[in-house]
């Protein structure tokens, strides 16, 4: 459900940046969503398209969502890499995340928890 508010924040960032750069048209918006967030890519995309479709400046904007794979590091054995079961189901493991090599639960998430507006392409 919080995809709605995240999409609103993304839209705010995009419109503010477009205005600061005196853009006349927003052509592309690139968003990165970490695989270990609780955000549904499909719902974020739906809301972004919905918001953008209501403004002439962004009506034609292409929304591109990049899913950032998870990267974890184990403080016990030094393992660094993908968690067990990477991919769209990875966040299910979040509460019981353990090192795939030594099985200890003291792992740090280095990547995969982000939600960022990476880039926008605009026309003046």
């Amino acid at each position: 459900m919080h995809e709605f508010s995240i999409a609103q924040q993304i839209v705010d960032v995009v419109f503010r940046t477009a205005q600061e750069n005196e853009a006349q048209l927003i052509e592309r918006v690139v968003v990165v969503i970490g695989e270990l967030t609780l955000l549904s890519e499909e719902q974020v995309r739906f809301w972004l398209q919905e918001f953008f479709s209501h403004k002439p400046i962004s009506r034609e904007a292409c929304v591109e969502i990049i899913v950032q794979p998870a990267l974890i590091r184990c403080s016990h054995c030094g393992f660094e890499g993908a968690p067990p079961c990477p991919g769209p189901e990875a966040h299910f493991l979040l509460p019981i995340l353990a090192c795939p090599r030594c099985g200890q639960s003291g792992v740090t998430i280095k990547e995969g928890r982000e939600c960022l507006v990476k880039k926008i392409t605009v026309k003046k």
Partner: peptide, 23 residues
Amino acid sequence: MKVIEFQEGESFDIELEEDLLKR
């Protein structure tokens, strides 16, 4: 910091890297 790179005439990319959850 915003880095502006020009691309195909009038269109240009604005790099943001603005992380909403981090904010």
